[in-house]
């Protein structure tokens, strides 16, 4: 179980990214965070694995206070939490398999790994991870030779190599077309259901949210303004919708594209 208590993050320039955020995530949930760009979704996700240090508040995961750990303990914690990113964050010039194997770095002998050496078990597991996401034949290509959808699958395979108990996904489908979005979220759902991995994911498209989320948090200006499950989202009133997405947002059709993101999507597609 993940407990976030009174989490606040204020950046050096004075921006309040998170303002007293509290919620809990039970094991095996598929939690989706919605909100506008700049609402604090990315900051929240990065506080959970401490890529960003919160200013105040506590995050308790499996009984440990994440905000207190340092050094080796922090790395041991991070290796149990996979992360995938909007822009995939692969090392573009390295091979696909090396990108996948780098997910293993928290477990292997650090000195051996500096020479890019990995044990045969690790390599076998890497191949299996690629197979799971259906791109085992691309293993020796350079990461930047792959299409966007394939790169995000490499990102998932890399997270899988960590044997994670939880995966944080920061807008994992925002750079992909709707069909690929379903594929990628399908993999996350599969991991969530078959391997009991907790998923915390930020998303923009409400139809995707409705389809995959078991629970939803709406963030606006660093505050939680809405909570509910995927059934509640249909019953969301227009005023609640505007709480999350602002006065200018227009709800075209419940559960479809909204606000800026809808505009952006249409601009790109048309």
């Amino acid at each position: 179980m993940l407990e976030v208590k009174n989490l606040t993050k204020i950046y050096n320039d004075g921006t309040v990214a998170l303002d007293d955020v509290s919620f809990t995530v039970k094991d095996n949930e598929f939690l989706v965070i919605i909100g506008l760009s700049g609402s604090g979704k990315s900051t929240l996700l990065r506080c959970i694995n401490r890529l960003i240090d919160p200013t105040e508040g506590r995050i308790i995961w499996e009984g440990k206070d994440v905000t207190k750990v340092q050094g080796t303990q922090l790395r041991n914690l991070r290796r149990q939490v996979g992360m995938i990113f909007q822009h995939f964050n692969l090392v573009k010039r390295s091979s696909v398999i090396l990108n996948v194997l780098s997910g293993r770095l928290g477990y292997v002998n650090p000195w051996k790994s500096l020479l890019y050496r990995f044990s045969s078990e690790d390599r076998a597991e890497g191949a299996a991870a690629l197979e799971m996401v259906g791109i085992e034949d691309q293993a020796n290509k350079r990461a930047d030779e792959l299409s966007g959808g394939q790169q995000q699958r490499v990102g998932i395979a890399r997270a899988l190599m960590q044997n994670p108990k939880m995966i944080l996904a920061d807008e994992p489908v925002a750079s992909l077309d709707p069909v690929l979005a379903h594929t990628i979220l399908g993999y996350l759902e599969k991991l969530n259901k078959e391997r009991d991995i907790t998923i915390i994911c930020s998303l923009h498209y409400l139809d995707l949210v409705q389809r995959y989320a078991t629970r939803i948090i709406g963030l606006r200006d660093g505050k939680i303004v809405w909570q509910g499950n995927n059934k509640d989202i249909r019953k969301m009133t227009d005023s609640q919708f505007k709480d999350i997405y602002g006065e200018e947002a227009e709800r075209v059709n419940a559960g479809s594209l909204v606000g800026e993101e809808a505009e952006k999507w249409h601009r790109e597609k048309l």
Binding site: N76, F85, S102, L105, P110
Partner: peptide
């Protein structure tokens, strides 16, 4: 991006540099 991704896997500082 890759630096952030590698830090998230629990890699140490040298590993992040190398990878």
């Amino acid at each position: 991006g890759p630096i952030e991704a590698l830090q998230a896997t629990g890699a140490n500082w040298l590993q992040v540099i190398m990878f």
